[in-house]
């Protein structure tokens, strides 16, 4: 639940300009999808928003506050691969966020606190369609299930912004359609602002409130190094979508109603 502002951001690696003149306002609760050809800086954009890399020029503001130059719990993330921890079971993967939050030193919960975290995690797992798989390790889950788990894990910690880096790119079309339904529901039921990167235009228009295309204006070989990609299209999706207005009082995410069945 946060507004994001990119204020004339440039990203350069040495002499190589990747992104230039990126100015963008994202309203709170938006679902932004970034599209564009390979190598146009979509992932770089996401990594800057994540705090993994700093902009060379300009600044990124979240709710008017400059972004800290490292990842933190305000921004959750799901990558295409390696988003879940292979040494933890499905349940442990989801509970982990709460353990890291509440037990700063031992990073484990005991007794009532643990039971509360486990109950919460089980509800979330049921919501993403992973009930009954709690004791499995991620390696024995299918690709789609792993990404559902990654979503549950990210949402458990209650981030303000959720960043998705081609999260469904490796999935079969049928499974992808299922997970789109889940993604929309999560976005509606939580207070997330979502920023997603994808190659898939139909996916972009199916999910987004706003689609942003990155493109290099000058792409001749001798110009490629010195001119970065910019925002070439900024499209509102019609009919207009908006997240439901939520009662924001509950602790994690405002998910105060029982989960709907069927993702």
């Amino acid at each position: 639940m946060s507004a994001v502002r990119f204020d004339n951001v440039w990203k350069e690696y040495g002499d190589h300009i990747v992104l230039e003149r990126i100015t963008l306002d994202v309203v709170s609760r938006a679902f932004i999808v970034l599209v564009g050809p390979s190598g146009c800086g979509k992932t770089t954009f996401l990594r800057m928003l994540l705090g993994e890399e700093a902009p060379t020029r300009g600044q990124i503001l979240i709710d008017g506050v400059p972004l800290k130059p490292e990842p933190d719990a305000d921004r959750g993330v799901v990558f295409q691969r390696y988003s879940v921890f292979p040494h933890l079971t499905v349940l442990q993967n989801v509970v982990l966020g709460r353990e890291l939050q509440l037990a700063k030193f031992v990073s484990r919960l005991f007794g009532a606190a643990r039971r509360a975290a486990v109950d919460e995690a089980m509800a979330l797992l049921a919501e993403v369609g992973l009930a009954g798989h709690e004791a499995k390790y991620p390696a024995s889950l299918s690709g789609g299930m792993q990404q559902r788990l990654a979503l549950a894990q990210a949402v458990m910690r209650g981030p303000k912004i959720l960043l998705l880096d081609e999260p469904f790119g490796a999935l079969d079309p049928g499974i992808r359609a299922d997970i789109h339904v889940l993604m929309k529901r999560l976005w509606n039921e939580t207070d997330l602002t979502v920023v997603m990167v994808t190659h898939d235009l139909s996916e972009a228009f199916r999910l987004a409130t706003r689609v942003i295309a990155f493109e290099r204006n000058r792409d001749r070989p001798e110009e490629r190094e010195r001119y970065g990609a910019t925002i070439s299209r900024d499209l509102e999706v019609f009919p207009r979508r908006a997240a439901e207005v939520r009662n924001l009082s509950t602790k994690r995410s405002g998910r105060d109603d029982p989960a709907e069945k069927g993702a």
Binding site: A73, F79, Q101
Partner: peptide, 19 residues
């Protein structure tokens, strides 16, 4: 990705090392 993910779950350096 795993180290980034842990940080987005709020983990400190110590917690990343431990968990």
């Amino acid at each position: 990705e795993q180290l980034i993910k842990a940080q987005t779950l709020g983990a400190s350096t110590w917690q990343v090392a431990l968990r």
